[in-house]
Amino acid sequence: MSASSSPPARSWHGRDLPHPPKVFGIGLSRTGTRSLTAALGVLGFDVVHYPVDRATHRTLVAGSARFPLLESRDGLTDITVVPYYQDLDLAWPGSRFVLTVREEESWLRSCRTHWERPLPDRGDDRDVRLEREVQRFLRAAVYGCHAFHPERFRRVYRRHVADVTRYFADREDDLLVLDVVAGEGYERLAPFLGAPVPDEPFPRLD
């Protein structure tokens, strides 16, 4: 949320917080994280999907959850924050976490296609070398490999969902498990974040 529209720090679900809460999308690749990011934007949250910048890269390499972007943005989504969700929970008390999930076989097929796809030539001035470095770092950190291996991916997916669910046990106000691909959307996301349900379709992005 922008500074003018952010809820007061002391009025988020009745909790006394030192700052407005952040929102983190901690689902794995190809679970609807782009759609989630777009939907959060509609709800007024200024979040960044899979940031590729030098400050974020330095933070990742240092093994830190103190992402500089969080000083001015409302949150982050995708595997950038997957290894750090517990650290972020401690660093930003009162934050909300959205775990996007997907039917396993559909997810594996999507991952295979995505992993075999080269980085697109977008015709802009982005630093392709930096993007590749971030990509390789995160894929190794999250999946333990650079190439697509279905059985490893399956184990990583199951372990991640189980670990997140266990970590947030008895904290239903802090974690939302959302299956965007299966059609879940604003009717669950908006109430979770204390926002009105928009009168428009939920974004469906590849």
Rank of each mutant, 00 (worst) to 15 (best):
R58P: 01
T31Y: 05
S29Q: 12
S64W: 01
Y50N: 14
A62T: 05
G41T: 08
V52I: 15
G32I: 12
D46L: 15
R73G: 01
F45S: 05
R54P: 01
L36R: 05
R30F: 00
D74P: 04
L70V: 13
A62D: 10
A39R: 07
F67N: 07
V61G: 08
D46P: 01
R30Q: 15
V61W: 00
L40V: 10
Y50C: 11
S35T: 03
P51K: 08
D46K: 14
S64H: 02
P51Q: 09
G44R: 04
A55G: 12
V48P: 00
S35H: 02
G41D: 13
A55S: 14
R73W: 12
Y50D: 15
S64N: 09
L36A: 04
R34D: 13
H49N: 12
A65M: 08
F67E: 07
A38V: 03
D46W: 12
H57P: 04
T37E: 14
D46S: 14
T59Y: 02
V47G: 01
S72W: 11
A55P: 01
D74L: 00
V61P: 10
A38T: 06
D46V: 07
E71P: 01
P51D: 07
L43H: 00
T37Y: 00
T33K: 08
L28I: 10
T59Q: 08
R54C: 02
T33S: 15
H49C: 12
G41F: 00
A62W: 01
A55H: 14
G44E: 04
V48H: 11
R66F: 03
A65G: 15
H49L: 12
L36G: 00
P68Q: 04
R54M: 11
P51H: 07
G41M: 00
F45Y: 15
F45D: 02
L69R: 04
L70N: 07
T56P: 01
H49Y: 05
